[in-house]
Amino acid sequence: MIFPGATVRVTNVDDTYYRFEGLVQRVSDGKAAVLFENGNWDKLVTFRLSELEAVK
């Protein structure tokens, strides 16, 4: 189960963010908004829950 605050990895091989890890900001309607941070940039991207896996 994916909840806000969880760290997730993108599993969709066709996505630009494949294998990126980010922090879930919100979850609704089968989608999750994931925040990616890297140095001087932040990006908030929405994914279907089926495209994400929780990082242990």
Rank of each mutant, 00 (worst) to 15 (best):
R48E: 13
F36G: 02
G22E: 01
V10C: 05
I2M: 04
Y17P: 01
V27P: 00
A32I: 06
V34Y: 01
V27H: 01
M1K: 11
V45M: 08
E51M: 05
V10I: 07
K56D: 14
E53V: 10
T46C: 12
M1D: 14
S50Y: 08
V24L: 03
E53K: 07
D14N: 14
T16S: 11
A32L: 03
T11W: 05
N12K: 13
L52R: 00
L52I: 09
T16Y: 14
E53C: 08
L35H: 07
Y18D: 02
K43M: 13
S50A: 09
K31P: 01
K31S: 09
T11P: 02
E53T: 09
D15Q: 08
V10S: 02
T46E: 14
N40M: 11
V13E: 11
F36C: 03
E53R: 06
V13D: 05
T11G: 04
D29I: 05
L52C: 02
W41P: 12
V10L: 02
M1T: 11
V27I: 11
N40F: 09
G5D: 03
V24M: 01
V34K: 00
A6G: 07
G30Y: 05
D29T: 05
F3R: 11
A33S: 12
V34Q: 01
D15F: 03
F47W: 01
V34M: 01
I2V: 06
R48M: 13
R26M: 14
L44S: 06
W41Y: 10
R19K: 12
Y18C: 03
R19A: 12
T7C: 10
L44Q: 06
L23C: 07
F3N: 06
D42F: 15
F47K: 02
D14S: 11
E37D: 10
G5N: 04
F20E: 07
W41N: 11
R48W: 14
R9I: 10
D14P: 03
V24P: 00
E37N: 13
A6H: 06
P4A: 09
E37S: 15
V27E: 02
S50I: 08
S50R: 05
K43V: 14
G30I: 03
A32G: 03
V24E: 01
A6V: 14
S50F: 08
N40E: 12
W41L: 11
Y17F: 09
L35V: 06
L44W: 06
D42L: 15
R9N: 03
E37L: 13
M1C: 12
E53Q: 09
V24G: 00
G39M: 09
R9A: 05
G5E: 02
R26Q: 13
A33W: 15
A33C: 11
L52V: 05
N38V: 13
E21H: 09
E51L: 04
R26D: 13
G5M: 04
K31D: 06
L44Y: 06
K31C: 11
R26L: 12
A54R: 09
F3E: 10
R19L: 14
S50G: 09
M1Q: 12
P4N: 05
L49R: 01
F3M: 10
E37G: 12
V8H: 02
K43F: 12
F3Y: 12
S28Y: 15
N38Y: 14
L52Q: 00
E51S: 08
T46W: 15
F3K: 11
F36S: 00
F20D: 04
V55M: 06
G39P: 08
V13L: 07
T7S: 07
D29C: 09
T11E: 03
Y17K: 03
T11A: 06
E37F: 13
N12G: 05
Q25E: 07
G5L: 03
F47R: 03
V13H: 08
V55H: 04
V10W: 01
G22M: 02
V45C: 08
F20W: 15
R9Q: 07
A33V: 15
K43W: 10
E21Y: 09
L44A: 07
D42S: 15
F47Q: 00
M1E: 13
L52P: 00
L49H: 03
P4C: 07
V24S: 00
F20Y: 12
I2E: 02
S50W: 12
G22Y: 02
M1I: 09
L44R: 04
Q25D: 05
R48N: 14
W41S: 12
R26F: 15
G22S: 01
T7W: 15
K43A: 14
R19Y: 08
P4Y: 05
V55T: 07
L49K: 03
F47T: 00
G5Q: 03
V13A: 11
V13R: 12
L23H: 07
T16H: 12
P4T: 07
L49G: 02
V10R: 00
I2K: 02
V8D: 01
R19F: 08
S28V: 10
V24T: 02
D15R: 08
